[in-house]
Design a protein around this nucleic acid. Structure first.
Lengths: 164, 164
DNA sequence: CATCATTTAGTTGTGTGCAATTGAATTGTG
DNA sequence: CACAATTCAATTGCACACAACTAAATGATG
């Protein structure tokens, strides 16, 4: 049986978190080039994808789809509005809520965006099944990490309460 | 034979890039909690990992290990220096270069960091082999994306030259 | 040796990402 | 109805990422 020396865990740790980070940034790099045509950044593209798929949404719902809070979305949406792709309107039913609506121009941009996924998929060198499998793996990882983060946070708060 | 409608590619695209993004940020969330003890952010921890493994390095080499440029590293290293974990010293041999050296305190921090990888690995819910396989997959993806980014950039510059 | 190209850090500006706070609007409870 | 708790977006402050640029030092070339 092969046990891993404690010190080597530091190297393994470096490798896995680094790999994920690197892949994420490499993805960002390709998107940056491909999306330059559309005048979008990668996070902005993600917002547009959600709006194209689900239609107009309040900021809150948008954030749930994207795992982003208003601290990130507010300035991002302002830039999309400045670019003429979306409008932000206070909901009449609930004035706390802000509806994000596609403009004509924003809706029209979808046509030009249709070419993006194919170029990205091509860049990965993965076929559809490989992408699907990797995605499942990553989603599993994310779920586990989120659950663990909750536990860690709960544990922290518990020890904080003991101090109080 | 099942062909995927073009419009559906947008949804698939959303899913794979989003999954990677989400996993990366979920990782960051767990690291944020775990590293709070050490007073490090996640990118700062990556820098310390490289220094612990390779010893003192010039900023350039550090950037190659981490795929980060001076625009990111300079302010980050200043914060590590302010925290007393590293020193930055102009190289005597080549005064363009800045050597990043661990302080006593920085080197000592390694002891406390030894517990981090195990906590992270536990949080993933993956065993060593699964981590290794995922890492290989991600590195493969990163390599493909980097190569594709180079091609895209080259193509852009080509068309730019035609315009000139 | 003088000059030009390259290398290396640093700086600036833009755009996320997230914690913490604020303030307005809504909901739940008595 | 009054009032406390909650919800939602926005804002503030901090820390990356990265492109573009600057400045200093080095190396290469004629």
């Amino acid at each position: 049986m092969t046990t891993t020396p404690t010190a080597d865990w530091l190297r393994l740790d470096q490798q896995i978190c680094f790999s994920l980070n690197a892949a994420s940034r490499a993805f960002g790099g390709v998107y940056r080039v491909v999306l330059k045509d559309l005048g979008l950044t990668y996070p902005q593209y993600l917002v547009m994808l959600v709006l194209w798929e689900h239609g107009d949404l309040p900021v809150k719902k948008l954030g749930e789809h994207l795992r982003l809070d208003s601290g990130t979305l507010s300035p991002l949406l302002k830039r999309l509005e400045a670019a003429g792709l979306v409008r932000r309107e206070r909901s009449a039913r609930d004035e706390r809520s802000v509806e994000v609506r596609l403009t004509e121009e924003g809706a029209a941009l979808r046509e030009r965006a249709l070419q993006v996924p194919r170029r990205i998929a091509g860049a990965t060198g993965f076929d559809v099944d490989e992408i699907r499998e990797l995605r499942a793996r990553l989603d599993q990882l994310t779920a586990a990490l989120d659950a663990a983060a909750l536990e860690e946070t709960a544990a922290l708060e518990e020890s904080a309460e003991q101090g109080a």
